[in-house]
Amino acid sequence: MSEYTQYLQEKDKIDVLLNQGYSIKSITENLSGAFVEFERITGSTITSETLHILTADARKYFSVKLIHQ
């Protein structure tokens, strides 16, 4: 799989969560890439999801989304 294809897959996962009303709550970056924790608050219910982002372009992508969220 080309890195571009991998990027598109990671971008899709990010977009799906953002479209579902999640926002970025925290980011952990380490030797394995970036772990982006998303959070959605619906009434009194808080749900969270974490994506492990591997590609450089997807790390740029969630950063742009974070700046504009």
Partner: peptide, 15 residues
């Protein structure tokens, strides 16, 4: 700067 505004950790062992 943007990452610094949210809870952000760097160089932590992988979860």
């Amino acid at each position: 700067a943007a990452l610094g505004k949210v809870a952000c950790e760097v160089d932590i062992a992988a979860k």
